[in-house]
């Protein structure tokens, strides 16, 4: 006889049951014996059920897997909520750091140059918005302690613009015509606004698509035409000094061989100028304009455009 036969025979013994008559008599006897110590009425009611549900819920959620899942839900939910709550925060708010971290995380997880450029534009727009709010708050309730925030916002805005310019250099949207004087080579290829990046193999005319009319400075931030002025790496001495410096350069832009309307680099320069003039709404509009150009443009990231470079109107699909 093998084990399966034995198990089968054992399972047959499940049919064993107490005598029905005995079962009924025993039940009555036991219930009558406990009657003296039992509750007068059956237990129930709202309080009892609430207490029961609470206990059951606690019993379920005390399981390790349920605890881990709950923590994950709260962390993710908390993250989403805090990001949503941080959306309108400005420097000095407790959630502002969460906003910045979120921006950096988005950038880190984006791999397409065009999308990165759009993100940088969006972040620059955020800085402009925040700057507007900070100035508004200062006007409404002058405390005199906003200079630091203004300075930091200004620096961050410039950094975002710098990043956009750098990315636009890598994206060939359309080959342009105007080739101004070759900008000076900068030690830092990232700073070359209109020049050829050190690691680029593309012909100059294509690489300089967005560099037209922009004189490269060591910092690469100033609009073309004038001598390189205040470096962008170090924050400007004060926000007030910038407009005058920029103003001196502004005519130079106009003097350059006129860029085509809709040239992102030009619009970017205009956005910078408007920012320095504290016209933040207009700055944001310009940034959105550039974003639309990138969105609607049919371009390729530099390096893939060898085939596209042959055609004057490169309409290569994205």
């Amino acid at each position: 006889m093998d084990e399966q036969d034995i198990i089968k025979k054992l399972r047959n013994l499940r049919q064993t049951s107490p005598d029905r008559l005995w079962r009924e008599k025993s039940r009555s006897m036991i219930l009558s014996q406990i009657a003296g110590t039992a509750a007068d009425e059956p237990v129930g009611g709202l309080f009892f059920f609430l207490n029961f549900i609470t206990r059951r819920t606690f019993a379920v959620f005390s399981q390790p897997a349920a605890v881990a899942l709950t923590v994950l839900v709260f962390v993710l939910g908390g993250s989403v909520f805090s990001l949503w709550a941080a959306k309108g925060s400005i420097p000095g708010d407790s959630l502002y750091i969460a906003k910045i971290i979120n921006e950096k995380a988005k950038l880190a997880f984006t791999f397409d140059e065009k999308e990165k450029a759009k993100l940088n534009l969006s972040f620059a727009g955020n800085r402009a918005k925040e700057m507007g709010q900070v100035r508004q708050n200062e006007q409404a309730a002058p405390t005199g302690g906003q200079e630091d925030k203004i300075e930091k916002l200004s620096v961050n805005f410039q950094e975002e613009i710098k990043a956009v310019k750098s990315r636009l250099n890598k994206i060939v949207l359309k080959p342009k015509i105007a080739q101004p004087e070759k900008p000076d080579n900068s030690a830092d290829p990232v700073q070359s606004v209109g020049g050829q990046p050190a690691d680029s193999n593309e012909p100059e005319e294509l690489v300089q698509v967005f560099g037209a009319n922009v004189e490269k400075s060591e910092r690469g931030l100033q609009v073309a035409g004038g001598p390189a002025s205040a470096p962008a790496q170090s924050p400007p001495a004060s926000a007030d000094s910038q407009p005058s410096e920029q103003a001196s350069n502004t005519p130079a832009v106009a003097d350059q061989s006129a860029p085509e309307a809709g040239d992102p680099q030009t619009i970017l320069a205009e956005a910078e100028k408007l920012f320095l003039e504290q016209d933040y709404e207009a700055t944001i509009s310009k940034l959105e304009e550039i974003n639309a150009l990138i969105e609607n443009g049919q371009g390729e990231v530099n390096g893939e455009s060898a085939a596209a470079s042959g055609s004057s109107t490169s309409e290569s699909a994205e």
Partner: peptide, 25 residues
Amino acid sequence: FQKLKYKDKQAFGELYDHYVDDIYR
């Protein structure tokens, strides 16, 4: 189980009906 903590006789009857055969076996 919760009702038994509060000495519910009816719940005890249900307990008996459910487990008497198993306990007997």
